[in-house]
Design a protein around this nucleic acid. Sequence first.
DNA 1: CCTAAATGACTTACCAGTCAGTCATTCCAG
DNA 2: CTGGAATGACTGACTGGTAAGTCATTTAGG
Lengths: 214, 214
Amino acid sequence: MGSPARPRLRRKEARPGELLSAALDTFREKGFAATRMDDIAARAGVSKGTIYLYYPSKEAVFEAMVRANLLPNIERMEAAIADEERSSADRLRLLVTAFGEIAGDARLVAVPKLVLAEAGNFPEMARFYRHEVIGRALSLVSGVLEAGMAHGEFRRLDAALTARLFLAPVIVAALWQTTFVPVEDAPVPPADLLRLHLDLFLRSIAADASGGAP
Amino acid sequence: MGSPARPRLRRKEARPGELLSAALDTFREKGFAATRMDDIAARAGVSKGTIYLYYPSKEAVFEAMVRANLLPNIERMEAAIADEERSSADRLRLLVTAFGEIAGDARLVAVPKLVLAEAGNFPEMARFYRHEVIGRALSLVSGVLEAGMAHGEFRRLDAALTARLFLAPVIVAALWQTTFVPVEDAPVPPADLLRLHLDLFLRSIAADASGGAP
DNA sequence: CCTAAATGACTTACCAGTCAGTCATTCCAG
DNA sequence: CTGGAATGACTGACTGGTAAGTCATTTAGG
């Protein structure tokens, strides 16, 4: 028993990231309230006091964790449609693929789910997430939709509403994944669902009645 | 100061319902962990001890509250398509309307959101909800879809997947409503969103009138 | 050595759950 | 009717356990 799991290390640079990563995994498993600072510390291989060297409170850890996971998501999305050469339909296809990858990554998806669950207790963060992540995703999609409409590729529709309809199945797939898959044995392959979604969606917004796909 | 707010009343019959209603409103505002039994009691105009006359624990209150809000939802849904005379498209239209009403009722929608948020801590309840509410909603929709396909009204598609795509925007609208509307000032009218959804969805699954290409 | 990062025992606050006592209501005896 | 005894719904101070946050001490690393 006497063997100390690890000698105490001093890693001023790496700590904050390690702590937030441990925090994400712990919040993901138990939710905000049921997570103890000792849990996070143990997972990061550190004692509780160490967390307080870097963050002033549990809430601060939570907020920092959410912020740390904003940029990667946004960048993935924006990278997915950087290619301006493609047709609007192709760009939507790429977007669905990119979102599908995010939706399949349980660790990434945990963040919005936590924001959702804690919106009542962290209204400021909810507003922030609403604008910085969801707002950007919506603009991204409606930008592509408007381009397609201007180009005559898609019918004229309310781009803001249509963008929401485009994203809805992705969001539901993501939430489903984190909520029910750990609890039951018959998962629906998100890839199949999203392929069908793209097919139906493109058909429903296509400009001419006689099909759109080349 | 001496004035007692209210004389103590004895209402053995009405209490359980009043307690669950107070519990719903409190859980809705703060989430499960952050609500205190004293909060629920105060909202119900009762002392904390009284709750324990009717429910053995905080978790029991939560579970009872969820169960109490199952049946109304299911019955609303099933009533919405009871009319077997109509076309499948019309029945989908009625379903969207019914779901839209549920989605617009912030109190009702809070329940699935709480289930979602607490699925990790109440796996049994998550499974239960998955089967008794979501499962039933999915069968309802896929039943209508299959009837429409058999009738030649809709294209042949995977009914289970398509049903999920049909429900996704309703679910997202509901979650949006409870999460972001209290936090910002520019709500999207769910009615507009769902009307567009129905339009696009029906178009995407319609059998090709002009003998089009698959 | 010296500094500052890391530790973990300690303090403090909070809250689920308990239970001895209170009082509104009912119901019979006179 | 009436009053007072019995009932049991209701109360709220209290307990025990838990966990956030602190800080005097320890020790890695330069």
